[in-house]
Write a protein that binds this DNA or RNA. Structure first.
Lengths: 223, 223
DNA sequence: CTATTATTCAAACGTTCGTTTCTGTTTCTC
DNA sequence: GAGAAACAGAAACGAACGTTTGAATAATAG
């Protein structure tokens, strides 16, 4: 059994096995709550493999976000590019912009076969546990796409002050993030509800559009 | 220096000093990310004090939620009771219900002097890191208030299916939670924005109402 | 005052953590 | 096929973790 045995493991396999296992465990137990030994055991690799391939646990965490978040925001920018090209200089409607921005995120969240859903849950978690070492990275990754969408939304809704748009985009991202983290939090507020993921997107879209186009709040601060 | 020295420490002080310090650190670094030694050092108490007074780290975590969450949901039920009494059997408007439900949360989040703001940040985190031992407790704590508000919202908006109301309440809680966690996540999406906490409440309320009253999504699922 | 209880404290417990080291094995290069 | 580079694997590293212990001190009751 020397010349006939095939190599038992794909050479590039170890890295992606670690990434997949880590995505699941980080999403489930958080960064601090995930032990290297549990992680490597799930991936079926040696304990030292993470440090060898990613340098450290933090390096692994960062790499997970790189491969997913870059792709997500690339899709968002591309969707906006295409929509703007289609409109030929005209102003895009807010509903179109919403589809371009949240569509890729919701599609990724609906993908349960390639880990997209898992990553979106992890992303939702990470917004609320802003580890210092990931904050700067996230800000860079989001800078371009945010600037472009805020500008486009302002053109679509000139009657809404720019600052209000920033706030409402913030609110919307919160709603989406929770909607994706989904069943867990939903079970908190009511037992047994139809959680068909195919229905989430239209539900969420109409809710978000309603919020985005809501009447402006009464101006406070006159005293 | 024997008879003249006063007792140096308030007897009940240790417990609340621990609770306050833990609230801050759990909100900042999460449950797993907070070390007992860092916690007791911040509180200025002995390392063993947490286990003595709360049994365990988990016991302390649970106690934090008991003292705040019970009060929060008590205010919500009371606000609903009073509104229903005022209306004398009439149907409450959705905007009134929103004020009753989210008002106490936003007020608590605006209280930076007694730790209310810190706790609401911790609460937002905890929704997304559903530790098994806290999930059941949260569900119990929320059961009554959720049932009552969902029923009241359905009376206010009979044209919106009950299931849609549950979803939209879910979306709204997500938006509120992110809005409260606030500046941190907001800095991600745009630099320099007016973050006056007094303006948050009206901003958020109009956004939420817009979403709650939005046109229903196109019915999917005929295929 | 004495006896009892409640609390504080320093020290140590055993365990688990992320990381490193070093040896063995495979894979590529010439 | 020899040498170099890349990778896998077992074992150990020191540090930090949550918790426990037992003695010292403060408060309380009879």
């Amino acid at each position: 059994m020397s010349a006939s045995t095939r190599p038992e493991r794909d050479p590039q396999d170890t890295v992606s096995r670690i990434l997949d296992a880590a995505e699941v465990l980080f999403a489930e137990h958080g960064f601090e709550g995930t032990a290297m030994r549990a992680l490597t055991a799930r991936a079926g690799v040696n304990l030292a493999a993470v440090n060898y391939h990613f340098g450290s646990k933090e390096g692994l965490f960062q790499r997970i976000f790189q491969r997913r978040l870059a792709e997500l925001n690339r899709q968002r920018v591309q969707a906006l590019d295409e929509a703007e090209a289609r409109s030929a200089g005209g102003v895009l409607k807010a509903s179109e912009l919403m589809d371009c921005f949240f569509g890729p995120a919701l599609d990724m969240a609906a993908d349960t076969e390639h880990g997209g859903h898992t990553f979106m849950r992890l992303l939702g978690r990470t917004y609320t546990e802003p580890a210092e070492f990931i904050r700067k990275f996230m800000a860079e990754e989001y800078a371009e796409v945010m600037d472009r969408y805020i500008a486009a939304l302002y053109r679509a809704l000139p009657e809404v002050p720019r600052e209000e748009i920033v706030w409402r985009l913030h609110f919307m991202m919160g709603a989406v993030s929770y909607a994706i983290s989904g069943i867990d939090a939903l079970a908190l507020i009511s037992t047994r509800v139809n959680d068909d993921p195919a229905l989430l997107k239209p539900r969420l879209t109409s809710f978000l559009l309603g919020g985005l186009r809501a009447p402006l709040p009464p101006e406070a601060g006159f005293a």
